[in-house]
């Protein structure tokens, strides 16, 4: 049963690493978290498999950070069970199997980057080789700089090095690029690609859709403390997206268009006819073959942003 659901949930990676029997990395069952009367997380079931790159997407206050904090053992769930590599989050961290990067939190003032890297590596039984770590986190020019004298983007690079120093199988990132400018963000994702290519599992929270779309193999969309959609970008768009074919049809009586291939629903706005379709290509072909005097044909493919907004809006009701 697990392999079947894994196949449904997992989109095969380019390198085929997940074609071997899937191993569960994270298993959350019925997780809830209430803080002083507010239900931040409201029953999350989530299984993450080895080799996946999972984006936790949602509006602010959706429960992403709370979920990640529980995954890291920084918060305890109010109810539900949570296992990371079959153990508690705390144990998984102490076995160097999980590395994480938080959104905030200062590092040690007065300590130099190189000294800090040595310290973090010394805590792990099999750390990444120092040179590889420096390369992956792009810290080459910063080793003699003090941690309290780094820019926001540089600090994030050190946090990233701290997260991967133990060569963890699971890397957890809470809005890793929130404090970065465009260039730093691009460099950061390049580092992350390099790390993921080593076969690691990555879970990150973000509210940048384009980052999730570009980088994640699987999206988990969260709203109001619940998972409202879960799958690959393509699967989510196929299922929840709303591609539209529209055209102007002047002064003619509107024929029934709901029978056209792919069309789910049609509407009229003034002289404009909008067809909500599952298959814009088939709908357009049928329109061309028809005798309808349409003009100004437009095809609007579903984009992730529109899908996301629709989903979050529906999820809120």
């Amino acid at each position: 049963m697990n392999t079947a659901s894994a196949a449904m949930l997992t989109r095969p990676q380019d390198d085929g690493a997940v074609n071997t029997p899937a191993t569960s990395v994270v298993r959350m069952q019925g997780i809830t978290k209430a803080y002083g009367g507010v239900q931040a997380v409201n029953g999350i079931d989530l299984e993450i498999w080895r080799g996946e790159t999972v984006a936790l997407l949602g509006p602010n206050g959706a429960g992403k950070s709370t979920t990640l904090n529980m995954l890291l053992g920084l918060l305890s769930p109010t109810s539900g069970t949570l296992q990371v590599f079959g153990m508690t989050p705390h144990a998984a961290i102490h076995h160097s199997r999980v590395g994480a990067m938080l959104q905030e939190g200062k590092l040690l003032p007065g300590v130099r980057v190189g000294e800090f890297i040595d310290f973090v590596r010394s805590l792990h039984p099999t750390p990444l080789p120092k040179n590889q770590l420096i390369d992956l986190a792009n810290l080459g020019g910063l080793l003699n700089r003090r941690l309290d004298r780094l820019s926001g983007g540089q600090t994030q690079r050190v946090r990233f090095a701290m997260a991967i120093a133990g060569d963890p199988e699971l890397l957890v990132l809470d809005e890793p690029t929130a404090a970065m400018d465009v260039e730093a963000r691009r460099d950061f994702w390049a580092s992350m690609h390099a790390y993921a290519a080593l076969g690691h599992t990555i879970v990150f929270a973000t509210h940048y859709l384009e980052e999730a779309e570009a980088f994640a193999s699987r999206l988990v969309i969260v709203a109001q403390g619940r998972v409202i959609a879960d799958g690959s970008v393509q699967a989510i768009q196929d299922r929840y997206g709303d591609p539209q074919v529209s055209f102007t049809l002047s002064n003619a009586a509107l024929p029934n268009l709901d029978h056209l291939p792919g069309v789910r629903e049609s509407e009229v706005q003034g002289e404009r006819v909008i067809l909500h379709t599952q298959d814009p290509d088939a709908t357009v072909r049928a329109l061309i073959a028809s005798a309808l005097p349409w003009q100004g044909l437009e095809v609007k493919h579903s984009d992730l942003e529109a899908t996301f907004i629709t989903l979050v809006h529906q999820g809120g009701h």
């Binding site: 920084l74 160097s96 999980v98 994480a100 938080l102 200062k106 701290m162």
Partner: peptide
């Protein structure tokens, strides 16, 4: 360290 989040970061290390 607790207020500025270093202690939280420290909890993510195996120490």
């Amino acid at each position: 360290d607790r207020t500025n989040g270093w202690l939280k970061n420290l909890q993510l290390l195996p120490i």
